[in-house]
């Protein structure tokens, strides 16, 4: 990997990864972020992550990336999952059990409809 030596080089990395972070001009349709801090894991985030990956595979969705993040702090509603479709505001869901995770894939990813009863927050944290 090239070593960073100047502001310009740092800016370049920033611009490129900002696009990915904000879901603009990427090759993907969107991304699903699972909060995987210790408390998230204690609340069952690992099972949730697995369910998402499996449900996407079962439905042959390959243009969604699944990534992890630290926690967003609202432990009460863990496990939390953020769905960020390209060009749209991210939606954060709470209390996402594996079952609800499958619902989110079906309803939000496949049919484009927000699962409003699980929604905790819209937009960036």
């Amino acid at each position: 990997m090239a070593k960073v030596k100047s502001l310009e080089e740092l800016m370049k990395i920033k611009e490129k990864s900002l696009k990915d972070l904000q879901m603009r001009d990427t090759e993907k349709k969107g991304k699903i972020v699972v909060a995987m801090g210790t408390c998230g894991i204690a609340a069952g985030a690992k099972d949730t992550l697995q369910a998402i990956v499996r449900e996407l595979a079962d439905n042959k969705v390959d243009d969604m990336s699944v990534v992890q993040s630290g926690c967003m702090g609202l432990c009460e509603v863990e496990p939390t999952v953020e769905v960020h479709m390209e060009g749209q505001a991210p939606i954060i869901y709470g209390h996402v059990t594996p079952e609800q995770a499958r619902r989110i894939v079906q309803q939000h990813i496949l049919s484009g409809k927000v699962v409003s009863d699980l929604m905790v927050k819209k937009g960036e944290i």
């Binding site: 960073v4 502001l7 740092l10 990395i13 920033k14 490129k16 990864s17 900002l18 990915d20 972070l21 972020v33 909060a35 990534v67 992890q68 993040s69 630290g70 926690c71 967003m72 702090g73 939390t80 960036e124 944290i125």
Partner: peptide, 22 residues
């Protein structure tokens, strides 16, 4: 906690995207 829950902690690029190492 500006980046917590916003970036992938295992990705330095995402940290840089949020002005990291500037």
């Amino acid at each position: 906690t500006r980046n917590m829950g916003v970036i992938d902690p295992m990705s330095i690029e995402e940290y840089i995207a949020r002005d990291g190492y500037f």
